[in-house]
Amino acid sequence: MDPERLIYPLMKYVLVGPAMRLAFLPTVSGLRHIPRTGPVILAANHLAFVDSFVLPLMVPRRVHFLGKHEYFTGAGARGRAIATLFRSVGAIAVDRSGGRAALDALDTSARVLEGGGAFAIHPEGTRSPDGRLYRGRTGVARLAMRTGAPVVPVAIEGTDRVQPRGRAVPKPGRIALRIGTPMDFTGRDAGTPRGRAAREVTDEIMEAIRGLSGQEYVDDYAPRPENGS
C-alpha cells in the first residue's frame, strides 16, 4: 500500500486536523452539498497560504490539490518532511514553469477526477492581496467541461486574519467554510467556442463564491506575488 495513504488518516484525524480545529475553531456549513463519492471540484476563494490545508482537512473526503514543485524537492530531513506533509494531505506536485505548465496542471487535475476523486482549486490563481475576490482564471471551467465533474463553490473566511501575508505560521483565530450547492456544466461548450464557454462558466462559479463569501468583487486578475508563491 502507498505509505502516504497510511499517513493521510493520521494527519487528518489524529495530528493536523485536530490541531487545526483547536486553533481555528472552524464553523463549516453545507457539508451535505459535497458528494460522498464520485468526482467533484471544490472551487474556493483564496485568502491565505493555509487555505490549501483548511479545505482538505475540513471536508469528509480525501481532497487533492496542486502544490508547487518546490515544496516536494527540498533538501535534507526538513525537505523530506515537508514533501511528506504535502503529499499526505493530498497535494500533487506540479511544475509551474515552462510553456506546457498550464496543460500539465490541467491533465494532472483531470486524472484525479477521472479516477472518481475530489479536487480543490482556487480559481483566482493566487492569494487575494486585499481580501477582495478577484476574477477567476478559466482552468476550473475547462476542467469541469472536460471531465463532467460538478463544481461545488466554497467560501473560506478568516484565514487572512490568522495568517496575514508575510506570516509563516498561522496564529489562533476563528475561521469559517461555507459550501454551496453543486453546479453542473455538462455540455456548456457544445455549439459555443470553448474559450467563450470557459469564460462564462468561470464567471458563474466566481459569482457563486461571491454569494457565499460576501466579498467585494474585482473584475481583474489578482496580481501574483513577486516571489511567485
Rank of each mutant, 00 (worst) to 15 (best):
A75C: 05
V201R: 06
A110C: 07
R135H: 08
A144S: 11
G38P: 13
A120Q: 02
D51V: 02
T27V: 12
L25R: 15
L31I: 12
A141I: 08
L133N: 06
E204D: 15
E4I: 15
A190V: 13
G99V: 12
L10W: 14
R167D: 10
V63N: 06
V201W: 01
Y221H: 14
D184Y: 14
G115Y: 13
T108E: 12
D184H: 15
P123Q: 04
L6C: 11
P3K: 13
I34G: 03
G211P: 13
R142L: 13
A91I: 00
A91Y: 01
A43G: 12
G195K: 13
A23F: 03
S213M: 06
E226Q: 14
P164K: 12
L31W: 04
H64Q: 12
L106I: 06
R80I: 03
G187R: 01
A176P: 08
R210D: 05
G148C: 09
D2K: 11
R224A: 14
M145E: 08
G211F: 01
P35I: 00
R87V: 00
P9K: 10
D104P: 09
G79T: 00
I205G: 09
M11C: 11
L66V: 01
I179H: 04
K171L: 11
P26D: 05
P164Q: 11
M1Y: 12
R137L: 03
D189E: 14
I205L: 07
D220E: 15
V54E: 09
F72T: 00
A118P: 14
P182K: 01
G115E: 13
F86H: 00
R137H: 12
P153I: 01
P60F: 02
E207Y: 00
R196M: 12
L57H: 04
Q163E: 03
R142V: 05
S52I: 14
K68M: 05
A48Q: 07
V140A: 04
F185G: 09
D203S: 13
A102H: 12
T202Q: 09
T181W: 11
G195I: 02
D130A: 07
F86Q: 00
V54K: 11
A198V: 08
G117Q: 03
A19L: 15
A101Q: 10
P153C: 04
R146I: 03
S109Q: 01
T147Y: 02
V169G: 07
I209S: 04
T108V: 13
G38I: 07
F65M: 02
D95T: 08
H33G: 09
G173W: 03
F86G: 00
P39C: 01
R78W: 04
P39Q: 04
E204Y: 11
P56F: 00
A83R: 03
G30M: 04
A155G: 04
H33A: 04
A176D: 03
R199L: 10
A44V: 00
H33C: 02
K12E: 08
R142G: 11
P56M: 03
A198W: 06
T181F: 08
F65Y: 09
T202C: 10
H46L: 07
A83T: 02
H69G: 01
A48F: 01
G117D: 04
R100I: 10
T108K: 14
V50E: 07
R167M: 13
T202V: 05
I41Y: 09
A44H: 06
Y8N: 13
A222E: 10
H69M: 11
